[in-house]
Design a protein around this nucleic acid. Structure first.
Lengths: 155, 155
DNA sequence: TTTACTGCAAAATGTTTGCATAAGG
DNA sequence: CCTTATGCAAACATTTTGCAGTAAA
């Protein structure tokens, strides 16, 4: 479901990408993992890791998240509200956006993925090297107190 | 292809939505139409209409674009770069995003639309009222000097 | 004539930058 | 050691707000 790297593997991945495996990078990554499904902005990541790492600076969190996204260790998430959000889940998945609660809810659906992959192969996109796609379902939670879930229709 | 409203129809649409048809709203709408395909932010819209409307304020442009999006006269566009962008084209269409040039290119594809519609009907999304979806294809222009185009495969 | 909208300027928010210091390879 | 990353604070960019005055219905 997720793609959590332990400290050792994370260190390797950073070095492979030509980055130093600093303490700050480790804890930013771990905080982002802990916030899985929340698609946080830098500030939220910072608030989570500050108690245990009082000397880390917000600027470093910003830089670290950008750097991680550049080397594809994490993903940037498109945001209706205009902020820069991040996601430690790098597996193929889509998002459901609720315009009431401003929540971004993950959903993974292999069939949907296969469908879109097949479609994109059936098209020629000239002068463009396609690296992936982003799908967001928009709408509103009917009952904001309860969860959204998705399943095959029984129809 | 687009959905341009003339002044008369725009006035009607605004009144229907309980909004006053002010001069500022008219010119913001027309500037956004003129910027079709550019998915501009408030500042860009402001720069375009300022020469002909020197007294309009940037704050009004911000408010107007938000108001328009609320009543669904225009669309908010998800942005990789974090700003709030808008689109006067409210027909079903997707976007191609080039990470080199930061361009957002429109593309309309009836088959893709039908495919996704059908898929979403085949799923039950519990506790969620689906109002639409947003699809973005990500990648890079091969030759930044030239255009991207999409067509059926000849394979 | 009433209410909603605008312009303005200030404040709030979110993000980036430059540089001296510190830490990793 | 050499280079890259960090912390800090200031700058920057973007967006929102409050309110007195203005214009639409």
């Amino acid at each position: 479901m997720q793609h959590p790297l332990n400290r050792h593997t994370l260190r390797e991945r950073l070095l492979e990408s030509g980055l130093k495996a600093t303490h700050q990078r480790i804890v930013v990554y771990e905080a982002l993992m802990e916030l899985h499904g929340r698609h946080p902005m830098a500030e939220e990541v910072y608030q989570l890791l500050k108690p245990a790492n009082p000397t880390i600076s917000l600027g470093t969190v910003y830089k670290t998240l950008d750097t991680f996204a550049e080397v594809r260790l994490i993903h940037k998430v498109l945001s209706e509200e205009g902020g820069k959000r991040f996601d430690a889940n790098t597996t193929a998945h889509s998002h459901i956006y609720c315009s009431n609660t401003k929540e971004i809810i993950d959903f993974e659906d292999g069939e949907l993925d296969a469908l879109l992959q097949a479609f994109l192969h059936s098209r020629n996109i000239r002068n463009f090297e396609l690296t992936g796609y982003t799908l967001q379902l928009n709408g509103k939670k009917v009952d904001p107190e309860n969860h959204v879930s998705i399943s095959k229709s029984t129809k």
